[in-house]
């Protein structure tokens, strides 16, 4: 390919297809094209190649492509709905869990402060207290 063509001129030729050349470059290229038969042939070949590539584009998928995508988008929407539900459930559970832990800490602290003995059983409400005894306890 263009072994006898000046490399700079060849680059200029390629660039001329995809960007604007300045006046000096244009003149240089025109002069080179006038004098070199090989460069003219190179230009023709590139043009033909470019034309074949652009004409050759496959610009469609199999029929009902849009319908297939709509079905997939519907599935994504459904998935998103379920995900949102699980996220909400997780958020609610988290609140209850945090509230439960806080209550337990307060109760442990309360037992620790007010208990007669400092045993772990007492602190963690595990002393031998019957259900009736619990019911008889004053609330406040």
């Amino acid at each position: 390919m263009g072994k006898n063509i000046n490399n700079k001129i060849l680059k200029l030729l390629y660039r001329s297809f995809d960007s604007d050349l300045n006046e000096k470059e244009k003149r240089r290229l025109e002069e080179a094209l006038e004098t070199s038969k090989e460069l003219r042939r190179e230009k023709e070949q590139i043009l033909a190649q470019r034309q074949t590539i652009s004409e050759n584009a496959v610009a469609s998928f199999k029929p009902f492509f849009a319908e297939r995508i709509i079905r997939r988008i519907d599935a994504v929407k459904e998935e998103n709905g379920l995900e949102a539900f699980y996220e909400a459930l997780k958020a609610i559970f988290r609140r209850f869990a945090i509230a439960g832990v806080v209550i337990m800490i307060v109760l442990i602290f309360y037992n620790f402060k007010t208990g007669e003995s400092m045993s772990m059983d007492e602190v963690f409400f595990a002393s031998d207290v019957t259900f009736e005894e619990i019911l008889d306890l004053p609330l406040f």
Partner: peptide
């Protein structure tokens, strides 16, 4: 935009089954 996506994907990958998957 189907035509331009098809031209891009098929141009890059060739006319193969994966091209449609990538298009979708």
């Amino acid at each position: 935009h189907e035509a331009q996506v098809a031209a891009t994907v098929i141009g890059m990958l060739g006319n193969c089954p994966e091209a449609e998957d990538i298009g979708q």
